[in-house]
């Protein structure tokens, strides 16, 4: 592995793309997209779109700023493993909230008044 210096143009192009995508994500938030109820949760398509754009931006940062091509095999495998286990955590935990009976969790949306109960 080595770090051959990339051309400054590559960095500038990446930078420009990130700026453009930031503007797009601001504009996209102005469009109201439908919200889909799923169990006791609500899936908001706006956030799906915003996250999709964020993922594209993140990929650009990883690919060019963080020199994906220079990453060793070990780093690639482990980075993928990290994302994979993060998704495992998300999916299994959300599987709980998705499938809970509404009655089971009824109480916890009604917030109480905040008291500091310590002495």
């Amino acid at each position: 592995m080595s770090f051959e210096p990339a051309k400054p143009q590559t960095y500038l192009l990446t930078f420009a793309a990130l700026i453009v995508l930031t503007i797009i994500t601001v504009l996209a938030a102005r469009v109201v997209l439908p919200k889909i109820p799923m169990g006791i949760m609500v899936l908001d398509l706006n956030i799906v779109l915003a996250m999709a754009i964020a993922c594209v931006k993140a990929s650009l940062v990883v690919l060019y700023f963080m020199h994906f091509k220079d990453m060793g095999q070990v780093s690639k495998v482990w980075a993928s493993a990290g994302v994979f286990f993060l998704l495992v955590m998300f999916f299994l935990t959300l599987g709980d909230y998705e499938n809970r009976h509404p009655e089971e969790t009824k109480g916890w949306t009604e917030s109480g008044v905040l008291h500091d109960r310590r002495p």
Partner: peptide
């Protein structure tokens, strides 16, 4: 080991369907 943690939570109010998976 990363996909079994819910077995600590069978009586916690966790969804019983997820409990079955765990």
């Amino acid at each position: 080991s990363f996909v079994v943690w819910g077995h600590h939570m069978f009586v916690s109010g966790q969804s019983m369907y997820l409990s079955m998976v765990f």
